[in-house]
């Protein structure tokens, strides 16, 4: 399952996608995130799955634009974010990379 956590508002789209087929529930994403955006637990969107999976912490989902800013400095190209880097199976991706819009 491609679980898209985040939102879209007037200013843009801000989604972190977790591919639950690739996620092995290892939890390596938790530590590197300076804003504590990730958690590991049972898959809340697939009640019949038994293995744990990563998800974006519910309270953080509506603030991603701002929470992710420290890892996405304006005007500078970012190759890989700490959460993406930590995820060996490559399950995590972001829908936006630059704060600089114009």
């Amino acid at each position: 399952m491609l679980a898209n956590y985040g939102y879209k508002d007037g200013s843009g789209e801000y989604f972190i996608t977790i591919d639950t087929e690739k996620c092995n529930g290892c939890g390596a994403c938790i530590e590197p995130c300076p804003e504590h955006c990730f958690q590991i637990g049972s898959d809340e969107n697939d009640p019949l799955r038994d293995e744990p999976v990563a998800a974006v912490v519910p309270g953080q989902r509506q603030k991603l634009k701002y929470l992710c800013m420290p890892c996405k400095p304006a005007g500078r190209a970012v190759n890989k974010l700490p959460c993406e880097e930590a995820c060996t199976p490559g399950a995590i991706s972001h829908s936006w990379y630059h704060v600089l819009q114009r």
Binding site: D9, G10, S11, M69, P73, A74, G75, R76, V99, L100, Q101, R102
Partner: peptide
């Protein structure tokens, strides 16, 4: 906005089209 002493713009970030900010 972040700028240099001579007024050159280094970086800027905007919140627009959303009343919350």
């Amino acid at each position: 906005i972040k700028c240099t002493p001579d007024g050159r713009i280094v970086d800027f970030a905007i919140n627009e089209k959303c009343a919350a900010g």
